[in-house]
């Protein structure tokens, strides 16, 4: 799915997060967003998913303007999956129920069909035995993989990943990133907000550095990470390197 953002603006009160924001993502492209904490990565992804209404500008999916005021967001959200930093599984539901809820209530699939979808995806990501577990019986890495499965079950054309490994213990990061690696091959369009620079470098077709409400620098990972042109990008990467995060 092709995504275009034109002159998008978003503020919270007097705090401007995005201003004059432009972005073009081709179908099947994997784009990573890096930038300091508070630079607006989460807000950007939430705007694309219409969880945050934008103040100005427009967002297009395959040429269709989805940000028009008064448009029903539900059919649009069905086509876009989002995975959150804090997993946000439904704690009162089993893994199966977490995954099948929207399949049954939104896509109106039968319970059998929905469970079949859940089982297939869980098996694909090594979670076959967790079908009837509850979120609090799972490790953070398992919970996040279930959250990814929940989003994928809707068969989205666009997947938004918001720092999906930030809340995880270091030894659990790998299993979650493996899921994303596998997805890259499947042709799904992905927008990834991340602090994992190595991962961004490896997985992305393009890396965007966010600063002051805009993309300060973007390009292929090799260029952005090895020969950044923008002074702020250089500073940011130096700081991250100093923290030993690359």
């Amino acid at each position: 799915m092709k995504l275009e953002m034109r002159q998008v603006a978003k503020s919270f009160g007097s705090r401007t997060v995005l201003s004059g924001f432009d972005l073009d993502v081709a179908a099947g492209e994997v784009v990573s967003f890096i930038g300091a904490s508070g630079s607006g990565k989460t807000t950007l992804l939430r705007c694309v998913n219409l969880l945050e209404p934008i103040d100005d500008g427009a967002i297009f999916l395959d040429g269709d303007e989805i940000s028009r005021i008064g448009r029903d967001p539900n059919p649009i959200r069905r086509r876009i999956g989002i995975v959150f930093q804090s997993f946000n599984l439904f704690p009162h539901m089993s893994v199966r129920q977490n995954i099948t809820l929207a399949l049954m209530r939104v896509l109106e699939k039968s319970a059998d069909e929905a469970t079949g979808t859940a089982k297939n995806l869980l098996a694909r990501f090594g979670l076959a035995d967790k079908l009837d577990a509850y979120p609090d019986q799972l490790s953070g890495g398992q919970q996040q993989r279930v959250a990814i499965v929940r989003a994928l079950a809707m068969n989205p054309e666009l997947l938004l990943l918001d720092e999906i490994t930030s809340a995880l213990d270091p030894e659990l990061v790998g299993e979650v990133l493996d899921v994303v690696r596998e997805l890259k091959g499947s042709g799904i369009t992905m927008l990834i907000a991340t602090h994992e620079m190595m991962f961004a470098q490896e997985i992305s077709d393009r890396v965007c550095f966010l600063d002051a409400g805009r993309i300060a620098e973007q390009g292929p990972p090799s260029q952005v990470f090895s020969q950044p042109r923008d002074e702020r990008t250089k500073q940011f990467l130096r700081r991250v390197q100093a923290l030993g995060k690359t």
Partner: peptide, 10 residues
């Protein structure tokens, strides 16, 4: 929790 539910199209 609301965000997660709405994002699934509920």
């Amino acid at each position: 929790q609301r965000a997660a539910a709405r994002s699934l199209g509920l």
